[in-house]
Design a protein around this nucleic acid. Structure first.
Lengths: 205, 205
DNA sequence: CATTGCCTTAGTCAATCGACTAAGGCACAG
DNA sequence: CTGTGCCTTAGTCGATTGACTAAGGCAATG
């Protein structure tokens, strides 16, 4: 019986989906065996039979979610379109992901990880993978915009973007806004004007 | 009997202290009535007698903590020293606060607030107060550095600083680092060179 | 010294938690 | 049709939770 039965695959998927839904709706403290089972429409014994423990289920929830996160990021920056376009897509995600609950899931998982060594390692690894995707994309992007490595090193740009993005996400979850629209519009204008300069004279003296 | 007995004041303070300690050590899920009472060295019945409920105790923990947070920020930017010095103090806090557990307390309280409407309002208010302190400080700072409002509006600078700071804090709690030192050193150099320019010729053509 | 009334305590309560298990079901091999 | 073994289920277990309360303590008052 090497094959996993369709019923089993469906049940495990339903449980992982339910975990994400509960993270969005009530936070990680509300993810209990019974709530999961009810939401997924399965018996609560399945959680232990399939996953062994709550911990393992949550770890797999983290694995599945972060795999998606990285995949989307990789796909975005692997595209052939100009850098400014990728940037705008990424910034649009900031808004879209709030509505979809994506960010809530991610930060609830992070909050769990603050007090869970195993999850913390995984979260750190995800961030490093994310930065690893960002770095070459920004090296190319800055070159494309003819912004000197000396004026703004790619590593610095990556750190700045990574951190202010996470800050925006954090503020959004508290329903706060220190001026996101203003900031994003300003950056967009900086990139746009750099693009205009880059398209202009091959390089002034 | 208008006065609150010293014993009572001591016990309530001990409970609020214990709440912060537990937030640092085990996260907000570990803040239980019994754990609080044991840590504070008082009877568990006191939590309800003094605070009425866990919720109220945690709200007061949030109140007390954020009052300190804002006060420190206000004191920092109210000082007479040049902007760059205030900036460096603020950035030093980023590292110090990690070790002291300050940041863990603050983010655990925020994480609670994601699923607690009453706390969320308070967290938002704290952020706005924070930004309200930052804005005039940055208006003065940018003027001091002779950075044109047109080149970098103060509101944009504030939003950028507020968000990337929170992003750094978030990464620190996961034990991750997308390049904080690099970023902070780069910004420091930008400010330092702006200061040199500002101290130089009164303004070139 | 006796009384009054708030303060403080130990202990109890129902509810809920993660974990676990006995038992029946069901698809498949022979 | 029968046996075999994994799959799935309902139900139980001790531990822990927030909430609550009866009863004793103790300082202030007259």
């Amino acid at each position: 019986m090497a094959t996993i039965t369709p019923a089993r695959r469906q049940a495990t998927t339903a449980l992982l989906d339910a975990a994400e839904e509960l993270l969005v709706e009530v936070g990680h403290a509300g993810v209990t065996v019974r709530a999961l089972a009810e939401r997924a429409g399965v018996n609560q014994g399945l959680v232990h039979y399939y996953f062994g423990s709550m911990d393992e289920l949550l770890l797999q929830t983290l694995e599945r979610f972060t795999a998606r996160l990285i995949e989307r990021q990789r796909a975005l920056y692997a595209g052939p379109e100009p850098f400014v376009e990728k940037w705008r897509t990424a910034m649009r995600h900031l808004t879209d992901d709030l509505e979809s609950g994506y960010q809530k899931v991610w930060l609830e998982l992070q909050a769990m990880a603050w007090n869970h060594a195993g999850m913390r390692d995984r979260v750190r690894q995800v961030l490093y993978t994310w930065v690893g995707v960002l770095r070459p994309a920004f090296q190319d992007g800055l070159a494309e915009l003819r912004i000197d490595e000396e004026r703004l090193p790619a590593d610095v740009a990556v750190a700045l973007v990574a951190t202010f993005n996470q800050g925006i996400i954090l503020e959004q979850l508290s329903g706060a806004d220190s001026g996101h629209r203003l900031l994003l519009d300003w950056i967009d204008e900086q990139i746009a004007s750099a693009e205009r300069r880059a398209a202009g004279p091959p390089r002034g003296g």
